[in-house]
Amino acid sequence: NQASVVANQLIPINVALTLVMMRSEVVTPVGIPAEDIPRLVSMQVNRAVPLGTTLMPDMVKGYA
């Protein structure tokens, strides 16, 4: 099963993503693939993302 990107903490809106904010985990439904974590660094989410939430492509500005 493919690992997805999961919030490692509350990720506020309009804050640049850092490695420490994200972890990889096998979850259902599948979200952004874990291998895209380096690409996500410095991008921003378009809504607050609670701890443990799977990041979906539509949550990250400029990802999709």
Rank of each mutant, 00 (worst) to 15 (best):
S42H: 11
P57A: 10
N46Q: 12
G31E: 01
P50V: 06
D36N: 11
L55H: 02
E35F: 09
V49Q: 01
V27M: 07
A34F: 05
S42L: 11
S24P: 10
S24V: 09
A34Y: 07
P33D: 07
E35W: 08
T28V: 13
V41I: 14
G31W: 02
A34V: 11
E35C: 10
V26P: 08
N46I: 12
R39C: 14
A3L: 12
G52T: 02
L17E: 00
L55F: 14
T53C: 10
K61W: 10
V27N: 03
I32F: 02
A48I: 13
N1I: 15
V5K: 01
I32P: 01
G62R: 06
D58A: 10
V20P: 11
V5Y: 02
Q44G: 05
N8G: 08
V6F: 03
R39T: 09
M59R: 03
V26G: 04
I32M: 03
L40P: 00
L10T: 11
L40V: 06
P29V: 06
I32S: 00
M43C: 06
V27D: 01
R23H: 04
V26H: 10
M56G: 05
V41K: 05
L10M: 15
M22N: 00
A7K: 02
I37N: 00
A7H: 02
L55G: 02
M21A: 04
Q44I: 09
V30N: 13
V20Y: 15
G52C: 04
S24Y: 07
R23Y: 05
V15Q: 15
E25H: 08
L10C: 14
I37V: 06
P50W: 05
Y63P: 04
D58S: 13
Q9R: 12
T53G: 12
T53H: 15
P57N: 05
Q2F: 14
N1G: 15
L40H: 00
P38A: 12
N1P: 15
T53R: 11
V49E: 01
A16K: 09
E35P: 07
G31F: 03
I32C: 04
R39I: 07
M43D: 03
I11M: 06
A7C: 04
Q2I: 13
S42P: 00
V20I: 13
V45T: 13
V26W: 13
T18W: 03
P29N: 05
G52D: 09
A3T: 08
L17G: 00
I37R: 08
L19R: 12
P50E: 11
V60R: 00
S24Q: 11
V26E: 15
S42W: 13
K61I: 14
Q44K: 14
P12Q: 09
D36C: 08
M59Q: 05
M43L: 13
E35Q: 13
V60D: 02
L51V: 10
M59G: 03
Y63S: 04
A48Q: 13
G52N: 15
T18R: 12
A34W: 06
T18S: 13
M43N: 04
E35Y: 10
L51H: 10
S4Q: 01
E35N: 10
V5L: 03
A7G: 02
T28K: 06
V30D: 11
I37F: 03
S24W: 08
A16C: 13
A3F: 09
V26D: 15
T54Y: 03
D36P: 01
A3C: 13
M56T: 12
M56P: 02
V6Q: 03
R47Y: 10
N46F: 13
I13R: 09
Q9G: 05
A7P: 01
N14D: 14
I11D: 00
I32T: 03
M59L: 05
P50K: 09
M59F: 10
V45K: 00
T18A: 09
I11H: 00
V6G: 01
V30A: 11
E25S: 11
V26R: 05
I13Q: 14
P38M: 10
R39H: 08
V6P: 01
L19Y: 13
V20C: 13
L19F: 14
R23E: 04
G31V: 02
V20N: 15
Q44V: 15
A7V: 07
R47E: 07
V15G: 09
M22G: 00
P33K: 08
V5E: 00
S4A: 03
M43H: 11
D36A: 10
V27F: 02
V27C: 05
N46H: 11
G31I: 02
T53A: 13
N1V: 15
P38Q: 11
Y63N: 04
V26A: 10
V41H: 04
A48R: 13
